[in-house]
Design a binder for these strands. Structure first.
Lengths: 174, 174
DNA sequence: CGCATATACTTCACCAATCGAAATATATGT
DNA sequence: ACATATATTTCGATTGGTGAAGTATATGCG
């Protein structure tokens, strides 16, 4: 960014930069949203199903509760989605050994294939383009993205910090 | 692989930076997603309803078709959502004068209030935090966000090419 | 004009998503 | 052993979302 030491033109006020940044971010959101919908229709999975499958596949041994927590869905929702994934032969339910209340979800071969087949259209395309950039810019973008995630996450500190056994109360705001 | 002995610490490869950036971005996405859900529950509107309302409010005279196009929903979906917004007394349907097949949607006072009342929780929080940052960082983040939006949008250039093809036609008074 | 065709919506039938509340089964502490 | 907490499912209900068919209006053409 070329910087004019004297700032003889009207430098945008802080709040304007913020809103411009937000607008750009919304464009990002929109792109990913549409992309995920498209991806989903390619694999025959709905976005939610895909998300849940990915969550299960990535840990290879998740419980409905943990998945619900991570994705911020209710357990009931996860149950319904897992029902379908099970019907499709993509995931498997089995009872926990240590704790028989638990249900252990794992991706069946077909499920893993589905995930690999569509590693994330988004990721693929993005990665390609990203790789074209000079290293300094890549680093800059990484730093910025992390900064942004903190800025936005901050308001949801309660929403994501837990990975496993949900020992969190989560008092719901009306 | 790619262990270059000249670097004493592990400098991430390009692809790694990309995936780290993606991860950060996903966190951003997640935050906004959850945020929008929460926002919606605050206003009593679902995300979709809110989106449609915003779309209507922002143009102050939209047709279902145009809204459907912009948001990439089917007309049937818009019809259903508008039904609810109408029941809630937030928007109004009236028939087009020039073309009586058309339906003109407009936000009623209550609808506009709803929009103003919740300008975007996300925006509010983000803006506050953003304002705390030094100017140089704000600028940096803006640049990064725009860069990112291009990187992601690029793959969808075909996805939204018609965004205004239907949205125009503001040949209001013949 | 009169008809064919195109457009703008709505209706309908259908399934997925999502949730809260209640039900079920298992753990755990006292 | 009993009360209570936890993990999940079931149930009932609403919304989201779509394609296909239906309705009304427009438009072009002979």
């Amino acid at each position: 960014m070329a910087s004019d030491p004297r700032f003889s033109y009207v430098s945008p006020m802080s709040s304007e930069i913020a809103s411009l940044t937000l607008r750009a971010l919304r464009r990002v959101l929109r792109a990913t949203e549409i992309g995920s919908r498209r991806l989903a229709s390619t694999t025959g999975l709905t976005p939610s199903q895909w998300l849940v499958l990915r969550e299960i596949g990535s840990r290879d041994a998740a419980t409905p509760g943990a998945v619900a927590n991570t994705l911020q869905f209710s357990q009931a929702t996860i149950t319904a989605i897992v029902d379908r994934l099970e019907e499709l032969g993509l995931v498997q339910r089995r009872r926990g050994d240590r704790d028989k209340r638990q249900v252990i979800l794992s991706a069946l071969p077909a499920g893993q294939v589905a995930l690999v087949d569509s590693p994330d259209l988004l990721q693929t395309n993005f990665t390609e383009r990203f790789a074209q950039l000079p290293l300094w810019e890549q680093s800059m973008l990484l730093a910025a993205a992390e900064r942004l995630s903190v800025l936005m996450d901050a308001q949801h500190i309660d929403a994501a910090p837990l990975l496993d056994s949900g020992a969190i109360d989560r008092s719901e705001p009306a």
